[in-house]
């Protein structure tokens, strides 16, 4: 006769090690979880420290108010970031013009009109669009969209703001479409049924009932998409050129904050030069822009959350 299970349990070793494990594991996991916090701290500290060095050489006022960005000048380098910001805004503007109507239109179609079958096919396909690497989009902008645009409007140069702007727009469509569709689908069925039962057309339901109810989610999706457009790097590096300019021209070569960082990284600006530190100052500015957008998105979706 074997001993009872309880006796075997009582005899089994490892009780002490069990207790130690139970104590150590939570601490270990907490340390792992704090890596993400450390990453944020690392990013902020890196940017601040190196930017600080940059501002010991270049005046802060010249940086944020200057309208000339000429870091590679042999005579006197100038670091006025406004041209880079203008370049970023040009790309973002075109991207928004392309992506907002298409993204929200697709979201309304998928959430209010499309059959279950269509939705089940289209949504994953849009996800593929979201999964295409940005380098591929950049190649597409440079070798397809730009030549097509040049065919239509000969004044457009090989490097310009329009083509990468459009392609950044295409890149953020899935983001707007999918997040807006989520917001609209989460409006309860009864609200929709209530409006339809009174004789509203689907369009009236969509614009007068669903859109207002899902507005916070839709606005948040657009803000997040704008943040992505501001931070987008490869499309602009390949197709927008590298000419920082402070004007309203979209047809010629421009430079954005991100593509400047790439341009310097590619070249061999030596460690310790002012140019080297300038990429941190530009990166910091970029970081602030995207952070503000992300905070705004969180604020919008929390503050104006609909109660159903």
């Amino acid at each position: 006769m074997r001993p009872s299970v309880q006796e075997m349990i009582a005899q089994s070793k490892g009780k002490k090690s069990k207790k130690i494990i139970e104590k150590i594991i939570p601490i270990l996991l907490f340390l792992i979880a704090s890596v993400s916090v450390l990453t944020t701290i690392g990013i902020v500290l890196t940017l601040i420290v190196e930017t600080f060095t940059f501002f010991s050489r270049v005046s802060f006022i010249d940086f944020i108010a200057g309208t000339t960005w000429l870091p590679f000048s042999n005579k006197e380098a100038q670091y006025g970031i406004l041209p880079l910001i203008v370049g970023t805004l040009k790309i973002t503007l075109i991207a928004v013009i392309v992506a907002v109507p298409i993204g929200i239109g697709a979201a309304i179609y998928l959430s209010e009109y499309a059959s279950e079958t269509v939705r089940r096919i289209v949504k994953p396909v849009l996800e593929i669009l979201a999964g295409v690497p940005t380098i591929v989009y950049g190649f597409f902008a440079l070798t397809f969209v730009t030549p097509v645009l040049q065919g239509l409007f000969p004044e457009i140069k090989i490097f310009n703001a329009i083509s990468p702007g459009i392609v950044v727009g295409i890149m953020i469509i899935p983001m707007i479409a999918s997040l807006s569709e989520d917001a609209m689908s989460s409006v309860p069925r009864q609200i929709r049924d209530g409006a339809l039962a009174m004789g509203s057309t689907k369009f009236e339901v969509a614009t007068k009932v669903i859109l207002p109810a899902a507005l916070s989610g839709i606005v948040a999706s657009v803000v997040l998409a704008v943040s992505r457009a501001i931070g987008e790097t490869m499309i602009v590096s390949l197709a927008a050129g590298s000419t920082p300019r402070f004007d309203g021209d979209f047809t010629g070569s421009i430079q954005t904050m991100t593509s400047y960082i790439v341009q310097v990284s590619k070249g061999d600006a030596g460690y310790g030069t002012t140019i080297y530190y300038s990429i941190y100052a530009v990166g910091f500015t970029l970081f602030i822009f995207t952070m503000l957008m992300n905070i705004l998105a969180t604020y919008v979706s929390k503050r104006f959350k609909e109660e159903y």
Binding site: T39, T40, G231, T258, I261, S265, G283, T298
Partner: peptide, 28 residues
């Protein structure tokens, strides 16, 4: 709550900025 917020904010940082972090911390 702070860790959670931090994670969602980290997701919104442009990849090129992560490059700057990597350059400073890991490379140098």
């Amino acid at each position: 709550a702070f860790i959670r917020t931090n994670i969602s904010n980290l997701a919104g940082v442009p990849s090129v900025v992560f490059g700057l972090l990597g350059l400073t911390i890991f490379v140098r």
